[in-house]
Nucleic acid binder design. Structure first.
Lengths: 115, 115
DNA sequence: CCTTCAAGTCTGCAATCCAGACGTTATGAC
DNA sequence: GTCATAACGTCTGGATTGCAGACTTGAAGG
């Protein structure tokens, strides 16, 4: 199981990259911003393998971006913390850049956040 | 060798995640923004494996973020394209969030961009 | 021609990924 | 209460990806 050892590099980009430089972490956060909270919900929406999801959820909890409610037991919800909500502008910038540069002219990027 | 198949998801975050959801890609772009241009320079600064660097440079060229000069042959420089320069605000937001949330109170984040 | 350096390539091994099966505990229907 | 179902993981085996470090190749300098 993949675990999280936070970076101690003095460069903030390097620290962020250790956490955010992972496809699943970015997609899980995206879906969490869009309202996903439960384990099965992430599995269904992302098509992620269950073991991979388990490890990413653990990483995000260790990093303080998700809180498990309840902390033990089944049927938990994964709730975004303030620290995670502070990431919204990063995602917004990323979505803006992506919409401008990763889509062909005849393609319409979906809005983010959705709504 | 890891190759780049761009995402065709309609969600811009999903497309960006395919490209930027990789620790090395983020760090290579960071160093390129800070002036790195040559293969050995990235190896020395990042401690990245040469094969891994080769694959990431190929991905960044396919994605249109780096241009190889000259296109063939040895002793090349890797130059950021306009598309890559447009990513600077994403890195700035990311560095701001990281500085605010990934550093303890008694730690001083290095500035980014450096200077 | 000989050396050095830049820019990869190759090899072998370790970590990670995924599909899919399985286990366990809550929850709701009756 | 008890039975069925759903939620939340764990486990296994095989494929893919990753890395360290040695090797290769071509250009430049002397």
């Amino acid at each position: 199981m993949k675990t999280y050892r936070p970076s101690r590099a003095p460069c903030p980009v390097a620290r962020a990259a250790r956490l955010l430089g992972d496809r699943w972490v970015l997609l899980i956060l995206r879906d969490a911003f869009l309202g996903a909270e439960r384990f099965e919900e992430f599995v269904d929406r992302l098509g992620i393998n269950r073991a991979a999801l388990t490890s990413r959820l653990a990483i995000l909890q260790e990093a303080g971006l998700l809180r498990r409610d309840p902390p033990e037991g089944k049927r938990a919800r994964y709730i975004l913390t303030d620290k995670a909500h502070a990431l919204v502008p990063v995602f917004t910038e990323m979505a803006g850049w992506s919409s401008a540069h990763l889509f062909a002219e005849d393609e319409a990027p979906a809005r983010w956040p959705a709504g």
